[in-house]
């Protein structure tokens, strides 16, 4: 049973299935090219840097910083309207790849570009856990 059935659930494809399986285990896997050594996101069958065809899955640190963000005062649909405003962000991971996510676990007004964030998984169903980000622990 889905916890939030009306949300837009990702549907894994053969090239993305290992990513979503890892998310299910609360692990962030991204691809690393065996030829040029660079990481890429989203998963592909070829390296988007050198077109190499040997891609390995590497566990990412799950840490990065906010490149840009917006506080959404209007949700795309009722399924997303539940918890007040949503923070949509682009995050550059330490592995130098960029991904979209939501920033959770803090006051939206606290969010700023350059903020250090870390991954936290949100379980949406028995199969799908979504990678989200929250402010990194300030030491």
């Amino acid at each position: 049973m889905s916890k939030q059935p009306a949300k837009h659930f990702p549907v894994p494809t053969p090239e993305t299935a290992p990513y979503w399986e890892a998310c299910h285990n609360h692990q962030l896997l991204i691809q690393k090219c065996a030829d040029c050594g660079k990481h890429q996101f989203y998963p592909r069958t070829v390296c988007s840097h050198c077109t190499g065809g040997t891609l390995e899955w590497a566990e990412a640190s799950g840490r990065g910083e906010i490149v840009s963000y917006t506080i959404m005062h209007r949700a795309v649909s009722k399924a997303y309207a539940g918890g007040g405003v949503t923070v949509l962000a682009l995050i550059r991971l330490e592995e130098d790849v960029q991904m979209m996510s939501n920033i959770i676990g803090c006051d939206p007004e606290q969010v700023c570009t350059g903020m250090s964030v870390e991954i936290i998984f949100e379980d949406w169903s028995d199969e799908i856990s979504m990678p989200m980000f929250r402010p990194a622990d300030q030491q």
Binding site: S68, T70, R74, A75, L90, M100
Partner: peptide
């Protein structure tokens, strides 16, 4: 929903972006 389907079906749309939000990222930057 139709307009926001411009988001990537696996790596963007699950996060609920509206089209204004996608442009909001550009605006802020």
């Amino acid at each position: 929903t139709a307009q926001s389907s411009t988001g990537h079906p696996q790596f963007e749309s699950p996060y609920g972006p509206t089209v204004p939000a996608l442009y909001g990222l550009i605006a802020r930057a």
